[in-house]
Design a binder for these strands. Sequence first.
DNA 1: CGTATATTTCCGCGATAATCGAATTATGGA
DNA 2: TCCATAATTCGATTATCGCGGAAATATACG
Lengths: 113, 113
Amino acid sequence: MESNAAIASLSALAHPVRLDTFRLLVQAGETGLAAGEIARRLGILPNSLSTSLSILNHAGLITARRDGRSIIYSAAYGRMREVVAFLLEDCCSGRPEICAPVAQSLERLACCP
Amino acid sequence: MESNAAIASLSALAHPVRLDTFRLLVQAGETGLAAGEIARRLGILPNSLSTSLSILNHAGLITARRDGRSIIYSAAYGRMREVVAFLLEDCCSGRPEICAPVAQSLERLACCP
DNA sequence: CGTATATTTCCGCGATAATCGAATTATGGA
DNA sequence: TCCATAATTCGATTATCGCGGAAATATACG
Protein backbone atom coordinates (compact mmCIF):
# COMPACT_ATOMS: atom_id res chain seq x y z
CA MET A 1 0.00 0.00 0.00
CA GLU A 2 1.13 3.47 -0.85
CA SER A 3 1.90 5.96 1.89
CA ASN A 4 -0.40 8.58 0.38
CA ALA A 5 -3.30 6.16 0.26
CA ALA A 6 -2.69 5.22 3.88
CA ILE A 7 -2.67 8.88 4.89
CA ALA A 8 -5.92 9.48 3.03
CA SER A 9 -7.52 6.60 4.91
CA LEU A 10 -6.13 7.58 8.29
CA SER A 11 -7.11 11.19 7.75
CA ALA A 12 -10.61 10.13 6.75
CA LEU A 13 -10.96 8.13 9.95
CA ALA A 14 -9.56 10.87 12.19
CA HIS A 15 -12.90 12.62 12.61
CA PRO A 16 -15.73 11.87 15.07
CA VAL A 17 -18.56 11.54 12.55
CA ARG A 18 -16.50 9.73 9.94
CA LEU A 19 -15.04 7.28 12.44
CA ASP A 20 -18.48 6.49 13.87
CA THR A 21 -19.82 6.09 10.35
CA PHE A 22 -17.08 3.70 9.37
CA ARG A 23 -17.44 1.59 12.48
CA LEU A 24 -21.18 1.46 11.97
CA LEU A 25 -20.63 0.12 8.46
CA VAL A 26 -17.97 -2.34 9.62
CA GLN A 27 -20.48 -3.76 12.07
CA ALA A 28 -23.28 -3.73 9.51
CA GLY A 29 -21.45 -6.16 7.24
CA GLU A 30 -22.06 -6.62 3.53
CA THR A 31 -25.69 -5.53 3.81
CA GLY A 32 -24.60 -1.97 4.42
CA LEU A 33 -26.71 0.99 5.48
CA ALA A 34 -28.53 3.77 3.65
CA ALA A 35 -27.16 7.29 4.08
CA GLY A 36 -30.38 8.43 5.73
CA GLU A 37 -30.29 5.56 8.19
CA ILE A 38 -26.73 6.44 9.19
CA ALA A 39 -27.65 10.10 9.65
CA ARG A 40 -30.62 9.08 11.80
CA ARG A 41 -28.55 6.78 13.99
CA LEU A 42 -25.77 9.30 14.49
CA GLY A 43 -28.11 12.25 14.85
CA ILE A 44 -26.44 14.51 12.32
CA LEU A 45 -27.60 16.59 9.35
CA PRO A 46 -27.83 14.78 6.00
CA ASN A 47 -25.54 17.19 4.21
CA SER A 48 -22.87 16.91 6.88
CA LEU A 49 -23.02 13.15 6.63
CA SER A 50 -22.88 13.35 2.86
CA THR A 51 -19.53 15.10 2.91
CA SER A 52 -18.28 12.58 5.45
CA LEU A 53 -19.39 9.71 3.25
CA SER A 54 -17.75 11.33 0.27
CA ILE A 55 -14.43 11.57 2.09
CA LEU A 56 -14.59 7.96 3.30
CA ASN A 57 -15.54 6.82 -0.18
CA HIS A 58 -12.74 8.78 -1.82
CA ALA A 59 -10.31 7.25 0.67
CA GLY A 60 -11.47 3.81 -0.47
CA LEU A 61 -12.82 2.81 2.93
CA ILE A 62 -16.44 2.46 1.89
CA THR A 63 -18.38 1.68 -1.29
CA ALA A 64 -21.74 3.00 -2.50
CA ARG A 65 -24.60 1.51 -4.49
CA ARG A 66 -27.98 2.96 -5.31
CA ASP A 67 -31.19 1.23 -4.30
CA GLY A 68 -34.23 3.22 -5.38
CA ARG A 69 -34.08 6.61 -3.79
CA SER A 70 -31.55 5.47 -1.21
CA ILE A 71 -27.83 5.06 -1.53
CA ILE A 72 -26.46 2.12 0.41
CA TYR A 73 -22.96 2.30 1.83
CA SER A 74 -20.81 -0.63 2.88
CA ALA A 75 -17.39 -0.97 4.49
CA ALA A 76 -14.50 -1.86 2.17
CA TYR A 77 -12.90 -4.58 4.26
CA GLY A 78 -10.03 -5.03 1.85
CA ARG A 79 -8.91 -1.45 2.26
CA MET A 80 -9.33 -1.67 6.01
CA ARG A 81 -7.03 -4.67 6.04
CA GLU A 82 -4.49 -2.83 3.87
CA VAL A 83 -4.38 0.15 6.22
CA VAL A 84 -3.85 -2.03 9.26
CA ALA A 85 -1.22 -4.10 7.49
CA PHE A 86 0.55 -0.90 6.51
CA LEU A 87 0.79 0.16 10.14
CA LEU A 88 2.09 -3.20 11.30
CA GLU A 89 4.53 -3.67 8.44
CA ASP A 90 8.01 -4.93 9.35
CA CYS A 91 7.01 -4.77 12.97
CA CYS A 92 9.85 -4.88 15.49
CA SER A 93 12.63 -5.82 13.06
CA GLY A 94 11.83 -9.49 13.24
CA ARG A 95 11.75 -9.85 17.00
CA PRO A 96 8.64 -11.94 17.65
CA GLU A 97 8.64 -11.44 21.41
CA ILE A 98 7.64 -7.82 20.88
CA CYS A 99 4.94 -8.15 18.25
CA ALA A 100 3.53 -11.52 19.24
CA PRO A 101 1.04 -10.08 21.73
CA VAL A 102 -0.12 -7.61 19.10
CA ALA A 103 -0.80 -10.33 16.54
CA GLN A 104 -2.23 -12.63 19.17
CA SER A 105 -4.83 -10.13 20.31
CA LEU A 106 -5.81 -9.33 16.74
CA GLU A 107 -6.51 -12.97 15.99
CA ARG A 108 -9.42 -12.81 18.36
CA LEU A 109 -11.64 -10.44 16.44
CA ALA A 110 -15.22 -10.26 17.58
CA CYS A 111 -16.55 -12.16 14.60
CA CYS A 112 -13.79 -14.62 13.88
CA PRO A 113 -13.71 -17.50 16.34
CA MET B 1 -10.52 2.26 23.88
CA GLU B 2 -12.18 5.62 23.84
CA SER B 3 -13.25 7.18 20.59
CA ASN B 4 -11.41 10.42 21.32
CA ALA B 5 -8.19 8.57 21.99
CA ALA B 6 -8.58 6.67 18.74
CA ILE B 7 -9.13 9.91 16.85
CA ALA B 8 -6.06 11.44 18.44
CA SER B 9 -3.99 8.46 17.31
CA LEU B 10 -5.44 8.33 13.80
CA SER B 11 -5.03 12.08 13.40
CA ALA B 12 -1.43 11.84 14.58
CA LEU B 13 -0.71 9.18 11.97
CA ALA B 14 -2.48 11.03 9.15
CA HIS B 15 0.58 13.09 8.23
CA PRO B 16 3.53 12.19 6.00
CA VAL B 17 6.31 12.95 8.47
CA ARG B 18 4.51 11.58 11.49
CA LEU B 19 3.50 8.38 9.71
CA ASP B 20 7.04 7.80 8.46
CA THR B 21 8.36 8.51 11.93
CA PHE B 22 5.99 6.05 13.55
CA ARG B 23 6.75 3.31 11.05
CA LEU B 24 10.45 3.90 11.52
CA LEU B 25 10.04 3.41 15.25
CA VAL B 26 7.83 0.35 14.80
CA GLN B 27 10.58 -1.21 12.73
CA ALA B 28 13.28 -0.10 15.15
CA GLY B 29 11.81 -2.13 17.99
CA GLU B 30 12.41 -1.56 21.69
CA THR B 31 15.82 -0.02 21.07
CA GLY B 32 14.17 3.06 19.59
CA LEU B 33 15.84 5.94 17.79
CA ALA B 34 17.17 9.34 18.84
CA ALA B 35 15.28 12.37 17.57
CA GLY B 36 18.30 13.58 15.61
CA GLU B 37 18.71 10.20 13.95
CA ILE B 38 15.09 10.24 12.85
CA ALA B 39 15.43 13.78 11.47
CA ARG B 40 18.54 12.73 9.60
CA ARG B 41 16.92 9.66 8.08
CA LEU B 42 13.79 11.53 7.03
CA GLY B 43 15.64 14.64 5.90
CA ILE B 44 13.60 17.17 7.84
CA LEU B 45 14.36 20.06 10.18
CA PRO B 46 14.82 19.18 13.85
CA ASN B 47 12.13 21.57 15.04
CA SER B 48 9.58 20.23 12.59
CA LEU B 49 10.31 16.71 13.74
CA SER B 50 10.09 17.80 17.34
CA THR B 51 6.50 18.94 16.93
CA SER B 52 5.70 15.71 15.10
CA LEU B 53 7.22 13.68 17.93
CA SER B 54 5.28 15.72 20.44
CA ILE B 55 2.01 14.98 18.67
CA LEU B 56 2.75 11.26 18.39
CA ASN B 57 3.78 11.18 22.03
CA HIS B 58 0.69 13.04 23.17
CA ALA B 59 -1.42 10.57 21.20
CA GLY B 60 0.23 7.76 23.14
CA LEU B 61 1.77 6.16 20.06
CA ILE B 62 5.40 6.64 21.11
CA THR B 63 7.35 7.00 24.32
CA ALA B 64 10.43 9.06 25.11
CA ARG B 65 13.44 8.58 27.35
CA ARG B 66 16.52 10.70 27.74
CA ASP B 67 19.99 9.30 27.13
CA GLY B 68 22.66 11.92 27.65
CA ARG B 69 22.03 14.76 25.24
CA SER B 70 19.77 12.64 23.07
CA ILE B 71 16.14 11.75 23.54
CA ILE B 72 15.30 8.25 22.42
CA TYR B 73 11.84 7.53 21.07
CA SER B 74 10.20 4.12 20.84
CA ALA B 75 6.91 2.86 19.43
CA ALA B 76 4.15 2.14 21.95
CA TYR B 77 3.04 -1.23 20.63
CA GLY B 78 0.22 -1.52 23.12
CA ARG B 79 -1.41 1.64 21.86
CA MET B 80 -0.89 0.57 18.26
CA ARG B 81 -2.71 -2.66 19.01
CA GLU B 82 -5.54 -0.75 20.71
CA VAL B 83 -6.06 1.50 17.71
CA VAL B 84 -6.19 -1.43 15.31
CA ALA B 85 -8.52 -3.37 17.61
CA PHE B 86 -10.78 -0.32 17.80
CA LEU B 87 -11.10 -0.26 14.03
CA LEU B 88 -11.86 -3.97 13.79
CA GLU B 89 -14.25 -4.07 16.74
CA ASP B 90 -17.44 -6.09 16.24
CA CYS B 91 -16.38 -6.65 12.67
CA CYS B 92 -19.11 -7.82 10.31
CA SER B 93 -21.75 -8.57 12.97
CA GLY B 94 -20.33 -11.97 13.74
CA ARG B 95 -20.13 -13.26 10.18
CA PRO B 96 -16.70 -14.91 10.00
CA GLU B 97 -16.75 -15.40 6.25
CA ILE B 98 -16.34 -11.66 5.81
CA CYS B 99 -13.66 -10.85 8.35
CA ALA B 100 -11.72 -14.10 8.26
CA PRO B 101 -9.42 -12.95 5.45
CA VAL B 102 -8.72 -9.77 7.39
CA ALA B 103 -7.70 -11.62 10.52
CA GLN B 104 -5.86 -14.25 8.51
CA SER B 105 -3.65 -11.74 6.76
CA LEU B 106 -2.85 -10.02 10.04
CA GLU B 107 -1.59 -13.22 11.56
CA ARG B 108 1.30 -13.12 9.16
CA LEU B 109 3.10 -10.06 10.45
CA ALA B 110 6.63 -9.62 9.21
CA CYS B 111 8.19 -10.48 12.52
CA CYS B 112 5.82 -13.05 13.90
CA PRO B 113 6.25 -16.45 12.30
C1' DC C 1 33.04 28.47 33.42
C1' DG C 2 32.49 28.54 28.45
C1' DT C 3 31.41 26.18 24.26
C1' DA C 4 29.33 22.72 21.31
C1' DT C 5 25.61 19.48 20.54
C1' DA C 6 20.74 17.85 20.94
C1' DT C 7 16.24 19.06 21.25
C1' DT C 8 12.43 21.82 22.18
C1' DT C 9 9.53 26.09 22.34
C1' DC C 10 7.81 30.40 20.55
C1' DC C 11 5.82 33.10 16.94
C1' DG C 12 3.64 34.59 12.68
C1' DC C 13 1.94 33.63 8.08
C1' DG C 14 -0.27 30.95 4.54
C1' DA C 15 -3.00 26.93 3.59
C1' DT C 16 -6.34 23.57 4.69
C1' DA C 17 -10.48 21.73 6.90
C1' DA C 18 -15.01 21.95 9.44
C1' DT C 19 -19.57 23.73 9.64
C1' DC C 20 -24.22 24.81 8.26
C1' DG C 21 -27.86 26.99 5.54
C1' DA C 22 -29.64 27.11 0.96
C1' DA C 23 -30.04 25.40 -3.56
C1' DT C 24 -29.71 21.25 -6.74
C1' DT C 25 -30.14 16.54 -8.62
C1' DA C 26 -32.34 11.99 -8.65
C1' DT C 27 -35.98 8.67 -7.87
C1' DG C 28 -40.72 6.90 -6.96
C1' DG C 29 -45.56 7.30 -6.84
C1' DA C 30 -50.28 9.61 -7.29
C1' DT D 1 -46.94 16.10 -14.76
C1' DC D 2 -46.51 17.32 -9.95
C1' DC D 3 -45.12 16.44 -5.39
C1' DA D 4 -42.56 14.21 -1.71
C1' DT D 5 -38.46 11.88 -0.30
C1' DA D 6 -33.36 10.88 -0.45
C1' DA D 7 -29.09 12.55 -1.01
C1' DT D 8 -25.63 15.66 -2.77
C1' DT D 9 -23.44 20.09 -4.01
C1' DC D 10 -22.52 24.94 -3.37
C1' DG D 11 -20.96 29.00 -0.85
C1' DA D 12 -19.26 31.64 2.85
C1' DT D 13 -17.55 31.96 7.42
C1' DT D 14 -14.67 30.29 11.12
C1' DA D 15 -11.37 27.52 13.11
C1' DT D 16 -7.40 24.68 12.87
C1' DC D 17 -3.00 22.96 11.00
C1' DG D 18 1.52 23.05 8.85
C1' DC D 19 5.78 25.26 8.19
C1' DG D 20 10.23 27.52 9.12
C1' DG D 21 13.14 31.02 11.36
C1' DA D 22 14.82 32.47 15.72
C1' DA D 23 15.42 31.88 20.48
C1' DA D 24 15.53 28.99 24.64
C1' DT D 25 16.60 24.78 27.47
C1' DA D 26 19.34 20.76 28.68
C1' DT D 27 23.43 18.01 28.71
C1' DA D 28 28.34 16.89 27.95
C1' DC D 29 33.07 17.99 27.87
C1' DG D 30 37.41 20.58 27.96
